[in-house]
Amino acid sequence: MLKSTYKVAGGKMVKIKLDVQDNKISRIVIMGDFFMHPEDALPELEKYLVSTEVSTVSLTRRIATFLEKNNVLVVGVTPGDFAEAIMLAVGFSQK
């Protein structure tokens, strides 16, 4: 299982555990000290990311779509931050 710890500008932490198969997410756990309302959205987001291609652009777009479609408010972390944390776990951080 791949892991990362990513510190977001502003101070929040995102921690990722994931498995990747054929360059797609097969399993992911997103952890951290951010706020997400409603809270039940996070397990749904994790399911929604399964089969997503592991690239910053695909991940950012898919996370943003999920949040918008489900009217989810995230405080302290952007879709790009989540994507960056995932890319860090797979060893392709751009930062």
Partner: peptide, 30 residues
Amino acid sequence: GVFQGMTEEVDLDYCRDNGIDYVRRITGGG
């Protein structure tokens, strides 16, 4: 916080050895 990993954040051995409780909240944060 509700989204944090317990074993990622907390030294459970230290807690058990020193009689300190640990619990997950239903709110976010640290």
